[in-house]
Design a binder for these strands. Structure first.
Lengths: 114, 114
DNA sequence: GCCAATGTACGAAGATCATCGAACTTGATA
DNA sequence: TATCAAGTTCGATGATCTTCGTACATTGGC
C-alpha cells in the first residue's frame, strides 16, 4: 500500500511527500481510509472549509497518532499534503476522487453528517 | 459491533439470524465491510444478479472464511441472509442502503467495476 | 545562535482482522 | 436410516491497525 520509493526535490511550498497519482487511487484503500471515525471526521471538516493544518483539527489523540491518520488518508489518495513552513497544509482531493469514483465522496460526506 | 442479543422465532424460509435495522446501519461499518476485495466482489456479484447462496460464489477461500465475510457484510447491514433449507440465500439490502446513504452503493459499485 | 512550534520516525503494546482446519448442526436424499 | 452437502462455531496463527511515548527534524522568530 504505502511505498515511498524515490522522491526528489524538497521544496518550500510544493510537495515533497509521496502521493498516489489519480490513476493509482484504489477503491478499497479509499474505503478503508474512510472507515475510521477519526479520519472520517478529518475528511468532513476538510470538505466543509478550506485548507487546514494538521494542528487545526482538535483531535483527541497525540501528535504521532495524528500523523498516522493523515498519512493513511494521504497514501490512499484522499487528501493532499503540502509543506508550508513548518506545517503541512491539507486539502481534500475532490477532483481526483470525483474523476475516479464519481459520487462517492459526496455520498460518504452526506452520510457522515447524518 | 456485532451483538446477537435475543433472537427468537426460528423459521423455515424467514430470518433467524441477526440483522441491523435500517436505522442501525452505520456508515463506518458499511465502509469497512466494503473495503475488503473479497467482500467487494461478493457485493458486486450480488448487485448484478439475483439472490445467491454462499456456495454459488466461487471464492478462493475455505468455507469458514466465507462464513466470516458474509457475517461481516450481514452485520454491517449490507446484505440480508435468509435461511432456505440447508443454505443461506443472500441479497443486497439496496433499498435500506439507498435510504440511509443515498448514492453510496451505486458509487462503490461503479468504482468496483472500474 | 537559540528556542518554540509543527510535525515525522521509530518502537512497543494491545486490539482487530483474515485465514485456516477440525468438529459440529441441519436439512435433503438415496 | 445412513449419508451427503451447506454452513456455522471454535480455536489458533500471523498480519495489520490504532494508539502511545520518546526522540528527532525543520522552520520561523527572538
Amino acid at each position: 500500500m504505502g511505498l515511498a520509493g524515490i522522491d526528489a526535490s524538497p521544496r518550500g511550498a510544493g510537495e515533497s511527500v509521496w502521493h498516489p497519482e489519480r490513476d493509482q487511487i484504489e477503491l478499497t484503500c479509499v474505503l478503508h481510509a474512510l472507515s475510521d471515525p477519526m479520519r472520517l471526521r478529518i475528511v468532513s471538516e476538510l470538505a466543509a472549509g478550506e485548507a487546514r493544518t494538521c494542528k487545526s483539527f482538535d483531535l483527541p489523540v497525540v501528535k504521532s497518532t495524528c500523523t498516522h491518520h493523515f498519512k493513511v488518508l494521504r497514501e490512499a489518495g484522499v487528501i493532499r499534503q503540502q509543506l508550508l513552513g513548518t506545517t503541512r497544509v491539507n486539502t481534500l482531493r475532490r477532483k481526483d476522487l470525483e474523476a475516479r469514483f464519481p459520487g462517492l465522496v459526496d455520498a460518504v460526506l452526506r452520510g457522515a453528517c447524518r
